[in-house]
């Protein structure tokens, strides 16, 4: 059972100093963005993280690849404690793809360059090899004809599909998604979710922060509900959506599902 665990989060805490200009934090000395998270993510599993805004979803996801440094606790990735001092974090990050709400494509590079720069510089792939891989993946998301375009020439949905492909070009063991469809016009949400669905069907391990409850129900193996920096409830989509236990989750579902 245990060797099936890809990422293990142990009593993870992240405290921020309050931002000075925020009125509502008057008198608060620290913000407990994460306040003791325990979570195992198994190989091939799709974990969907839901919860109200400010509950710590992004902080959790960004802690998994150490874009945020935890205040305390551990993250074990493929058997190694990546939170240990002097852990080879740049090596670990290559195996963890990340997709951002605002795509973060490199605007000064063509799409093809966006996709090949990391494999060439970090995995030491030849240009030809990297481009073949990139073109094959572009083909699969239906954007092969945009290889020579620049990011600003694409629609939001296209940008996000490219961002997913950019991560896939590094052949990661897990993909982290932070609200990948929240910045999109409604008509473009579907095309991005379709790519993610396909990825899930192929057995990719995924951690997805999203407000798309339909996606959570259909694709999620497990749904994690967070509030105030802790995991309030977790279970199968069935359990979470049809049989919520806590009042917080019931409240939350009542608000998001119309």
């Amino acid at each position: 059972m245990n060797d099936n665990v890809l990422i293990s989060v142990k009593d993870l805490k992240k405290h921020y100093k309050p931002r000075k200009n925020k009125k509502y934090t008057d008198g608060v000395t620290k913000i407990r963005a994460l306040d003791g998270i325990n979570l195992d993510i198994h190989k091939g599993e799709v974990v969907v993280v839901i919860g109200p805004s400010g509950s710590g979803k992004s902080t959790l996801l960004r802690s998994l690849n150490l874009l945020e440094y935890p205040t305390s606790g551990q993250i074990i990735f493929e058997g190694l404690d990546i939170t240990a001092p002097h852990a080879k974090i740049n090596k670990h990050r290559r195996k963890m793809g990340m997709v951002f709400q605002h795509f973060n494509l490199f605007p000064n590079m063509t799409i093809l360059k966006n996709l090949t720069i990391a494999p060439m510089k970090l995995l030491k792939k030849s240009k030809k090899e990297a481009e073949e891989k990139a073109m094959a993946l572009l083909e699969r998301v239906g954007l092969a004809d945009r290889a020579q375009a620049y990011p600003s020439q694409l629609s939001g949905g296209q940008k996000q599909r490219i961002a997913i492909v950019r991560s896939l070009c590094m052949e990661p063991d897990v993909m982290l998604f932070d609200e990948p469809t929240s910045a999109l016009d409604p008509e473009m949400v579907g095309e991005v979710l379709d790519v993610m669905k396909e990825l899930a069907n192929e057995g990719m391990t995924m951690v997805v922060v999203t407000h798309e409850m339909g996606f959570a129900k259909e694709v999620g193996d497990r749904v994690v509900f967070m509030a105030d920096g802790v995991i309030v409830e977790e279970g199968t989509p069935q359990e979470i959506f049809t049989n919520p236990q806590s009042d917080r989750l019931k409240d939350f579902l009542a608000k998001v599902i119309v």
Binding site: N65, R93, R94, M98, H102, N104, L105, F106, I117, K121
Partner: peptide, 22 residues
């Protein structure tokens, strides 16, 4: 935009590589 920096680091570039390439 700090997102550019984060994208570089998230892909596995170290600080200096992110600076130079991105």
């Amino acid at each position: 935009d700090v997102g550019q920096f984060e994208a570089g680091r998230a892909m596995g570039f170290n600080y200096i590589q992110t600076m130079i390439y991105v």
